[in-house]
Design a protein around this nucleic acid. Sequence first.
DNA 1: ATGGTGGTTGTACCA
Length: 297
Amino acid sequence: MRPEDELSSPPGPRLATWNVESIRARHDQVIAWLDENRPDVLAMQETRCPARLFPTAHFNRLGYELVIHGGDGGHGGVAVAVQETDDGLSSVRGIDLGFPGAVAPLDQPRSISLTWRSWRIHSMYAPNGAKVGTDAHRVKLAWFALLRQWLALERTDHPHSIILGDLNIAPADIDVWDARRYRMRNLTSPLEREAFAALLEDGLVDVVRSHYEGVPVFTWWNRRSDFYETNRGWRLDHILTDAETARSIEAVWIDRQERGRDGSTDHAPVVLDLLSTKPAGHAGTAGATPLVGSGPT
DNA sequence: ATGGTGGTTGTACCA
């Protein structure tokens, strides 16, 4: 899963997403992983921690600045850690916490959007959805409708986009360890899969799937029982990019071993390594129109 | 038929 050069730094930017399932309970694991893998950007979900109680100092010591959104009451919450630059200035701008203008129940702390280098970066934590047919499930679908609108709006201003997060959808049967058993259920239902597919129809590329075509890869294993040990998992954590960014990928990998640590969060980190330079013919194309409909088939 | 775990908050809830 992890590329051969696992301990060396990639030539270009490294971005990762990780559902940390409480940053206060898990900061030792997260900080150790950051220290070892040194992503430029780590999008975190389910931080379950109000901003004032966030273990910020641990991140600062490693040279990361933080953007934090919510987590009050021990539910939800997202954050983005970004490697500090040498000039002492913040390397992020244009921060949006949540979907601007959203009203309850779509105003929960589940998203951060910010500009970093030439990319618009989004850390997303979709509602779990509980069970098909419940209010929670309808809220999940409404959240995805709003996400689609928000990303379409954002992409008119920022052609280079990277969406990282726990979207709480297994996009296809291959993304579930036993698709038949969990058919038409929460995380697999047709309306959820349509919501995910709509993002690809808008021109975003599911870069994990496009790099593991036809191969089952999982990012979440239920903590109960021996689901991890027996690899009964799901692919719920995703990285989507615009088509041009998708053409400049060095590697995509899931740090499956990290999930096996004692006391680990139940999700594995998902990592995107980009090439240091744009592909030939695409240098200096800031402002280019994103290609549409070029996602994996 | 529906187990099994963990975090946070508070004696249930969310995942």
